[in-house]
Design a binder for these strands. Sequence first.
DNA 1: CGTTAGCACCTTGATGCAGAGAGTGCTAGA
DNA 2: TCTAGCACTCTCTGCATCAAGGTGCTAACG
Lengths: 349, 349
Amino acid sequence: MEERAAQIELTQRAEHLLRVLVEQYIREGLPVGSRTLARASGLDLSPATIRNVMADLEEMGLVRSPHTSAGRVPTVLGYRLFVDRMIEVQPLDEQLVEEFRGVLNAGEGPQELVERASRLLSRVTQLAGLVTVPRAEHAVLRRIEFLELSDDKVLVVLVLEPHEVQNLIIELDKPLSRQALERAADFLNERFSGLDLQEVRARIEHDLDCMRRDMDRLACAAAELGDRVFSETLRDPEDFVVVGQTRLMEYEELSDIEKLRQLFEAFSEKRQILELLDKCIEAEGVQIFIGQESGYDALAGCSVISAPYRVGGDIVGVLGVIGPTRMHYERVIPVVDATARLLGEALSA
Amino acid sequence: MEERAAQIELTQRAEHLLRVLVEQYIREGLPVGSRTLARASGLDLSPATIRNVMADLEEMGLVRSPHTSAGRVPTVLGYRLFVDRMIEVQPLDEQLVEEFRGVLNAGEGPQELVERASRLLSRVTQLAGLVTVPRAEHAVLRRIEFLELSDDKVLVVLVLEPHEVQNLIIELDKPLSRQALERAADFLNERFSGLDLQEVRARIEHDLDCMRRDMDRLACAAAELGDRVFSETLRDPEDFVVVGQTRLMEYEELSDIEKLRQLFEAFSEKRQILELLDKCIEAEGVQIFIGQESGYDALAGCSVISAPYRVGGDIVGVLGVIGPTRMHYERVIPVVDATARLLGEALSA
DNA sequence: CGTTAGCACCTTGATGCAGAGAGTGCTAGA
DNA sequence: TCTAGCACTCTCTGCATCAAGGTGCTAACG
């Protein structure tokens, strides 16, 4: 789709008209006729001329008529061209940025920040806000602790750097004494605290190799435990938070109950949306998926605008909004962009 | 409403007809006319007679006509009478009970069990399943541990009896040394582990009184810490899990988007639904709220069937389903009932 | 007295039709 | 290359009609 869009060549006039048409349609939500377009375009052209141009655009798959005698509406490809070439994204108003910053800095801990960001996105754009929970790989290990639960179960508590506590329960093959656990924790803390989780994991793997030769029993047990813990923790838990789903019910375009049902199903199943968001995680800046470009039927008629967010230079998650394809891209894009930046800031604090 | 329902006296014939009408309406979803009712009732009466009876029922507020020339539809009060007096709840098929038990016993930990129960309810009834997370008051304290996070912050890890770990962060007024924390934990563990949380809290409060006189510094600090922890923990976190909301979109009666929006809003706001579920927590068995009886506009057109579930004799939560008022009560009630019992069992295991 | 038959009446919902409005495609001419 | 004109198409609205299903009332019946 995007490749197809890239190849399309338009006269300047056609491009201008497409742009005016899309803008008008986004504002009004009604098919745009040649007469209206002639007036709105600012060009001194008659409706008939416009009609000729429209016929061309239709042939190229950029617009279509709902029926013979309605105006034209943009197709997915038309929107694509619009957002790729015709939008001028102004940076967000500085005052708003400050407000966002205020909201986000008032929260503490990743969970709360993610929720605040999602709520913020939804409130400001009037769409549904999505934020994935940040990956932990680059969090810094502050402390690890083992608590014996039963003969073969151990509770692991990980205290991570910015403000996060994770716990998980692991089952042991062979029981370990309380002292052994304590010593293992000391060993791991001494060696690894202050490093980020990826680093920790890498070192543990390296250590394991060395130790197998050394046969230092204690260190070996500790490293093995650590290995299990960190491979569990780093297998990304992959989850996201949605806020404001119900706003989507207010849009004309999504008034078909069956369509809505599919969409909401996608929200609660999570899988499809996660896959989609995953695609953005490597992208540089704001990404836009229009309609079914994403390939998921449930998202027909919807667009997703997303951006990755970073902590200390590393991408740790993705956020964005989802709403009807007929949305005000120019206004939403800077909001998503700024929120991503500010969430990153807030998480680093 | 229920008081009004209790006072209503009906001839046996009228009662029978109301019952047949409601059953028919639940099955077909269309207003029931006098002719149909005459045939379905099994009584040897003419439509004209039925019409007279219907006029009486209408005057009593048990049925109404959508318009002059449609059949009759039960009102909220009519449903109320129906479920209170006319339903015979058969216990759930033993085979199904076994299946339920299997599903629930395959889960571990309160969180997973709650989710499984909710999913189960939704799947079997084709409605939305609701389950509150169990209150912790009657969980047994196994172990408490303090980890120093910074000068004034301590991470508290509570290991509870069946299979649950909670952690919370508390801020200290005055910093405590690591050793002090360790000793406090030892003190609390020795004294309280094996008791349920309510008991623990009661004793701590008692201890605090005594200690203020004794002035044993260490014990006093420990008890104060403990007091803060347990008063935090017991302030019920009050949350619930919904599964299968999207099923509700498939019902004719809820096809009005605005109504759906309100309903879904209620799900995500949680407050109203929590209040409603709270009302059931003291009830003996299955409770039924029909339509707006609950007093929440968002639930107009919906009924909630709920039952509390117990661990070791104590009610720790509520579960149920929510669906259109026109639902198959006779079939749903036993499912809710059984699920509550089995979730209790599974949590105790 | 309760029950019933008959009847006039009411709504809804489907169907068909006509006219207005908006917009198109095409053709011929500037 | 652009534009004016025109026939055409489609939707929407209002209006009238019709059948179906049901009601309330009244009067008669056992």
